[in-house]
């Protein structure tokens, strides 16, 4: 299903990530998933938050550049080949390109979660539903 992801521009210098996380803590915001993509001088912190709109707003007010984007969230079996068979292969066969993705554990046993940014989210959603 489609969900909102909050992405934040954070410079590579000590303490900046801490400041951003303090803002979220102050809002009693839970980070459900997180991934950092790093460049040489900066990183892009991508997060799935308990309340994306409120979280993004608070982060912006603290002086960060933030953006909200729609990404896909999908469940997959937490077993060998799970990512391959239920996500990677079906998307490849449908000719959908992955921009990036990150995976995390699901509280229910035997399941894992994945967040994906793809070239064609509508079609990818249909493919993954099957």
């Amino acid at each position: 299903m489609k969900i909102r992801q909050v992405s934040v521009f954070v410079e590579n210098k000590p303490g900046r990530l801490v400041e951003m996380l303090e803002v979220l803590k102050g809002q009693k915001m839970n980070i459900r998933a997180l991934c950092i993509s790093e460049g040489s001088d900066f990183g892009i912190v991508r997060m799935i938050l308990s309340d994306p709109a409120k979280g993004a707003d608070a982060i912006r007010k603290a002086g960060f550049t933030a953006t909200e984007t729609t990404v896909l969230h999908s469940e997959m079996p937490d077993e060998p080949g799970g990512l391959l068979e239920t996500v990677a292969k079906p998307l490849a066969e449908a000719g959908i390109n992955l921009e990036y993705f990150y995976a995390f554990i699901n509280p229910s046993p035997g399941k894992a979660n994945i967040v994906l940014k793809v070239s064609d989210p509508d079609r990818a959603e249909q493919v993954l539903r099957r």
Partner: peptide, 13 residues
């Protein structure tokens, strides 16, 4: 980096 140029995709940055 303003919001107008910021992207969640590293390759765009």
């Amino acid at each position: 980096v303003s919001e107008a140029v910021f992207s969640d995709e590293m390759r765009k940055m």
